[in-house]
Amino acid sequence: MTYITDKKKWYTEQITACQASLYRLAVSLLRDEEDARDALQEALCTGYEKLNSLRDPDKFHPWIMRILHNAAYDILRQRKPSVSLSDIPSGQEPSSTPSFSVDMALGDVVKTLPEEYRTVVILFYYEEMSVRQISEITGLSAGAVKTRLSRARDRLRQMLDL
C-alpha cells in the first residue's frame, strides 16, 4: 500500500464506491439503523487503521466487508445476552419460516432470515461473491457456506414463491 500517496483520499474514494454494499450488509445483519451506523463507523476506522495490511488494493471490497462483518458481529454478540431464552414463548420456533406476501422486496425478506443465513445471502446474491470469497469474509469453511446457502435458498424460494 506504500505506493498510494494520498491514502486518506484513496480510502475515501473506495468507501464511497462501496458504501451501499457496506450499509446493506450492516443493516441486514443488525436489523437496526443505529447499530448499522455504529458498525459502519467502527469498520471505517478499523479499516483505515489497518490499511497497510491490505496487500492488494483490488481486493479492497472483500477486505472491508470482512472488517465490517466482524464489527457487526461484535455488536450482535453484545446484544445476545440481553435476550434470555425464557423470553421466547414456548412452542414458538424463533427461526421458523413465516409466510410473506409475494410482492415483498427481497431485502425485507432477507432481514427475516435467521442471522446465520443473512450474511451469506447478502454476499452471494447481492454482492455476487463466490463461495470462496464468502468463506474468507465470514471465516466459515467453504462447506459451511454452501450448507447455509442451500438452506437459505430453500427458505427464500418458499418465501418469495419462486
Binding site: 447499530d35 451506523r37 455504529d38 458498525a39 463507523q41 467502527e42 471505517l44 476506522c45 483505515y48 464489527a71
Partner: peptide, 9 residues
C-alpha cells in the same frame, strides 16, 4: 476524532 460520535466506540 473519527470515532468520537459513535456509541459503539
Amino acid at each position: 476524532a473519527a470515532r468520537s460520535l459513535s456509541r459503539f466506540h
